[in-house]
């Protein structure tokens, strides 16, 4: 083994007259005062924080006092380190990240020569171990992943809206036509799913009276100037909460998709790719709004297992 020798000068043996040991400050006295001053300000800041805390001062006082304390503590340290310590430059050697052929060989030899005896001759053991370990790796994932939640099954395809469901407010009150003026907008739910993120539906009064036909084939879906659409945006699932009555546009506040109510909530602007599904509604003999059927397609944004219908 080579003896480590001290051939290079170290800190003690370098003359203090060396230019590297000068400090960077031009006016040393002034820099000392500034450094000293910032530690004093820091001290005052920390002390003030303590006082403020006992007095239960407002939060901005806590933050300001401790912030000033920390900042000037740091300022003092930096000015000390930057201006009042030897400015250098100093250097140290940097070994490159390369190894000699010989070093590589030695490691390889250590690995394989022992391996020939200990590992290579018994390759069937390796295979058996790998098989056991591999199966463990796979089955270990079952409880870790599978237990996390139920399979989606049909739950993304349907809502709680059924034939005959009453349209009710968030408080559970059934809705009737006289509850809303023209241009009005109300979020409704089925009675058994109040406040639901999935079943939320928006009921609009777009005109005074008469059927609203948003699309051919939907002649009986929207009585007396009322029309109902799913409130879940078909883009990224935000609630489509804004309604511009003059242009009869539903607007999603998240990414500004716009849906044309008169045209079956067809998206006319923004990233939404599909119209909002329309809920077919009617007014029953007691004058309450009810669903003719549930939605005829999955509501909300697309997902991988959704059918391909546009």
């Amino acid at each position: 083994m080579t003896e480590t020798t001290n051939e290079h000068p170290d800190l003690e043996s370098v003359s203090l007259d060396s230019p590297q040991f000068e400090v960077a400050a031009k006016n040393i006295k002034r820099t000392e005062y500034v450094t000293f001053g910032s530690f004093i300000i820091s001290l005052i800041g920390f002390a003030a924080f303590g006082a403020a805390y006992t007095q239960n001062s407002p939060n901005y006082v806590f933050g300001l006092t401790i912030g000033i304390g920390l900042f000037f503590f740091g300022f003092g340290l930096v000015s000390w380190g930057k201006y009042l310590m030897p400015q250098g430059p100093f250097s140290e050697p940097r070994p490159l990240m390369e190894t000699t052929e010989k070093e590589k060989e030695l490691l390889k030899a250590d690995f394989t020569s022992r391996g020939k005896v200990a590992i290579k001759r018994r390759s069937f053991l390796i295979k058996a171990m790998a098989a056991a370990g591999g199966v463990f790796g796979i089955v270990a994932a079952f409880p870790l992943i599978r237990s996390l939640g139920p399979l989606p099954k049909n739950s993304l395809m349907t809502t709680k809206w059924r034939k005959g469901s009453y349209l009710t407010t968030i408080y559970g009150d059934r809705v009737k036509p006289s509850d809303m003026e023209v241009g009005g907008i109300l979020t409704v739910f089925p009675e058994d799913d109040l406040g639901s993120a999935i079943s939320q539906t928006i009921l609009l009064r777009v005109q005074e009276s008469g059927k609203v036909v948003t699309m051919p084939g939907r002649e009986d879906w929207a009585p007396d100037g009322f029309v109902a659409f799913s409130k879940v945006c078909t883009h990224a699932g935000c609630p489509v909460g804004l309604y511009e009555h003059l242009e009869q546009l539903l607007v999603c506040p998240c990414h500004q998709s716009m849906f044309n109510v008169k045209d079956g909530a067809m998206p006319i602007f923004g990233p939404a790719p599909r119209p909002l599904p329309q809920l077919p509604i009617y007014i029953d003999s007691n004058g309450y709004f009810r669903a003719r059927a549930g939605y005829d397609e999955p509501i909300g944004p697309g997902f991988w297992t959704r059918g391909g219908t546009a």
């Binding site: 933050g63 300001l64 401790i66 912030g67 000033i68 304390g69 920390l70 900042f71 000037f72 503590f73 740091g74 300022f75 003092g76 340290l77 930096v78 000015s79 000390w80 380190g81 930057k82 310590m85």
Partner: peptide
């Protein structure tokens, strides 16, 4: 000194922002 000081400068500015 410089890095330690810089730590306090960073935290100090963050605290004042907060």
């Amino acid at each position: 000194a410089k890095a330690g000081g810089f730590f306090f400068l960073t935290t100090g500015v963050t605290a004042i922002l907060a």
